[in-house]
């Protein structure tokens, strides 16, 4: 049994290097134990077993590009079993070339489920990051910061989106699973946990006004809202603490609209209609 400890913060390269060596040495998935290295593991002196040497009798491994795309996403998942799952798939795909096009295969189905979770997590990050302005511009560039709490290690793979979109401003996105920062020249990534910045932005007040008034109280659908914007995101959304009162007041507001007698139009209405 070979035991390997990985940092496991969404970096495909560390897993890929280990997996390639194992494959070349002919080590089957049942003979590898994958672990996530954390502070505790270091304390107890858990360390990687040395990687075995390549077996020259084995054919060169094949890695379909579809596998790399899948692995690149799956590796970002927090599931501790992801390393073993990917190695099992890699091992099997050497013999079963069509494996990845059988979505009903249990390993493929599981990997696709993790991939989907990563896509969703990244999509929600693009949606729910909220930038707050940090004081006055510096060197003519405005500066913003955001705090976000993703489920998985997705900051690295999602940062490019923010760079392509918010190009003319400086920004930093801090999360417990790493951070990304842009200064107009360089995108700086880190996988170290960040501290939550404490910022107040007055424009949040206008956004809250918009949120409250674009809501139609005659069409309350709380389930539909929550399935798309689960409560775990609410604490970092400036608009979310309005939601309970909007829900509580909706029925009265609707009844008020229905019960109210039709009113008389104002004079300008008659002036317009006379012109017709």
């Amino acid at each position: 049994m070979i035991r390997l400890c990985l940092r496991g913060r969404g970096d495909l390269a560390e897993w890929r290097d280990a997996a390639r060596a194992l494959l070349r040495a002919g080590v089957g998935p049942g003979n590898v134990e994958w672990q996530v290295r954390d502070a505790g593991a270091d304390l107890f002196g858990l360390a990687d077993d040395p990687l075995p040497p390549a077996d020259p009798a084995l054919p060169a491994p094949t890695v379909p590009s579809a596998f790399l795309t899948l692995a690149d996403a799956v590796i970002c998942h927090r599931d501790p079993a992801r390393f073993a799952l990917l190695y099992r798939l890699l091992w099997r795909v050497q013999g079963e070339r069509a494996l990845l096009s059988i979505p009903s295969d249990p390993d493929v189905a599981r990997a696709e489920m993790l991939e989907k979770a990563i896509r969703r997590d990244a999509h929600k990050m693009k949606a729910f990051v909220r930038f707050k302005e940090m004081g006055a511009p510096r060197d003519g560039r405005r500066r913003f910061a955001a705090w976000f709490e993703p489920d998985n290690f997705i900051v690295g793979r999602t940062a490019g989106f923010f760079q392509r979109r918010f190009t003319d401003m400086d920004w930093i996105i801090a999360t417990p699973k790493g951070s990304a920062a842009w200064d107009g020249q360089t995108l700086t990534l880190s996988d170290e946990p960040s501290e939550k910045p404490n910022l107040i932005d007055d424009t949040d007040d206008l956004w809250r006004t918009y949120f409250a008034h674009i809501f139609n109280p005659a069409r309350l659908k709380v389930q539909a809202m929550q399935s798309q914007m689960p409560k775990k995101y609410w604490k970092n959304l400036p608009e979310a603490d309005l939601i309970p009162d909007l829900i509580a007041g909706a029925e009265d507001r609707m009844r008020d609209m229905i019960d109210r007698e039709a009113t008389q139009p104002r004079p300008f209405h008659y002036r317009i209609r006379e012109r017709e």
């Binding site: 809501f215 069409r219 659908k221 709380v222 389930q223 939601i243 829900i247 909706a250």
Partner: peptide
């Protein structure tokens, strides 16, 4: 979708 109102 950057937010959802309580009307879903």
């Amino acid at each position: 979708c950057h937010a959802y109102a309580p009307d879903g």
